[in-house]
Simulated assay, not measured.
Amino acid sequence: MIVEINGNPLDVELLGGDDPGKPLLIAHHGAPGLGSRREPSAAFGHLSDLFRVLVFDARGSGKSGDVPPFTHEQWAADIDALREWAGAETLVMAGGSYGGFLAMEYTIAHPHRVLALVLRDTAPDHTHEEAATANARASSRIQVDEDKLDRIMAGQIRDNDDFRDCWASILPLYDHEYDPASIQARVDSVDYHYATHNFAFAVNQHHYDVKPGLPSVSCPTLVTVGRSDWITPVECSETIAALIPDAQLVVFEKSGHSPPMEEPERFQQVVRDFLVTRVLDA
C-alpha cells in the first residue's frame, strides 16, 4: 500500500496482520536507489507469526516517491514516522547492507524505542569502500570494468540506463556461488533511481561513521555476515560486534553479501532463536 510519510509516498507492506499484541519489526533494505522491500521481506517475513513485520521501499527507491532529501537524517525520520503509523511505541530494528547503516543510526538516535537490533552484511563507517574496490579488482570471477566500478562507488552515475549497466557489471561479485544465468533476471527486476544512489554514495557516505555511538547501544544485538562478502567484508561486522556491548556475531560460511538468500534455513533459525530468546522470552 502507498502511505504518505513525511511528505513523500512510501510503498509499505505490513506482514503478520494488525494484532497490536505482536511486537513491531521494521526492516530496512539496502542499496538506496536500487533496493526494495522484496529484500527484507525475504529475510524477515518468516517472522510474521511472532511479529508485525513492516517492510517498505525507502524514499527514492523501488515504487516509493523521489522527494528529496536522501539523507540519513531523513531516512531515519521516515523510520520513526512508520513506527508511529503502525501504532507502536517500540520496535525491533533490522537492516541489511546500507539499510544496516540506517538501522544503527536509528538505534543510536532512539535508544528507548529499540527492543533489539538485527544487522546483516553492513559496516560501521565508510572505510569499507577501499576494501570493496580492492576485492572487486582482485576477483577471478569477472574482469571488472574500471570506469563503471569507479563511477558506481563514487556516486557518479549519469542516468538510470547507466545505473542499470553499472549495476549489471558488478552484480556477479555478490554471491558465494556464481550463477551467470540469474544475472539478467536480477538486473531486470530493479527499479532504478540514479539520483538517490548518487547522493548516498557521493555525499552521505563521506560523513558516515557510527563507531562513536555503538558503545552506547544497550539493546540485544545480532550481527550477521557472509564469509565471502566483497563489499562489506567480515572485518566490518567484527568491528560492529566488538563495539556494541554483548553483541552476538554469526558468520555464514557459504554466503556472500546475502545469507538470507544463500543460506536461508540457517539464517532464519539464527534470527528466530535470537529474537525469541532476547525479546519475546526476556
Rank of each mutant, 00 (worst) to 15 (best):
V3A: 12
E4Q: 14
I5W: 04
G7V: 06
P9N: 08
L10Y: 03
D11M: 05
L15Q: 01
L15H: 06
D18Q: 06
D19T: 08
P20W: 08
G21F: 00
G21P: 02
L24Y: 07
I26T: 00
A27L: 06
H28N: 13
L34V: 10
G35E: 02
R37Q: 14
R37G: 01
A42S: 08
H46F: 14
L47W: 06
R52I: 02
A58C: 13
R59V: 01
G60R: 08
G62L: 09
K63L: 15
G65H: 11
G65Q: 11
V67T: 15
F70K: 08
H72S: 12
Q74Y: 11
W75R: 09
W75Q: 12
W75C: 02
I79S: 03
I79H: 14
A81R: 14
R83V: 04
R83T: 03
E84S: 14
W85N: 02
W85V: 01
T90W: 00
L91H: 04
V92M: 06
A94D: 01
G96A: 12
G99S: 01
M104Y: 04
M104C: 04
E105D: 11
T107R: 12
P111W: 12
R113Q: 11
V114H: 01
V118H: 02
R120K: 08
D121E: 12
A123M: 13
A123C: 13
H126F: 09
T127K: 08
T127P: 00
H128I: 01
E129G: 07
A131D: 11
A132Q: 01
T133Q: 12
A138W: 03
A138Q: 10
S139H: 00
V144D: 00
D145P: 04
A154D: 03
I157Y: 05
D162V: 08
F163T: 02
W167A: 08
A168Q: 12
I170Q: 05
P172H: 10
Y178Q: 02
A181H: 05
I183M: 10
A185G: 07
V187H: 06
V187Q: 07
Y192E: 02
H193Q: 13
V203I: 15
S216A: 15
V217L: 13
P220L: 10
P220C: 13
P220Q: 09
P220M: 13
L222M: 14
T224D: 06
V225P: 03
G226D: 10
R227M: 09
W230P: 15
T232L: 05
P233D: 08
E238R: 15
A247Y: 07
L249A: 08
L249W: 10
V251K: 14
F252G: 09
S255N: 05
S255V: 02
G256Y: 11
H257Q: 14
H257D: 08
M261Y: 14
E262G: 10
P264D: 12
P264Q: 07
P264N: 09
R272K: 15
R272M: 10
L275E: 05
R278W: 00
L280T: 01
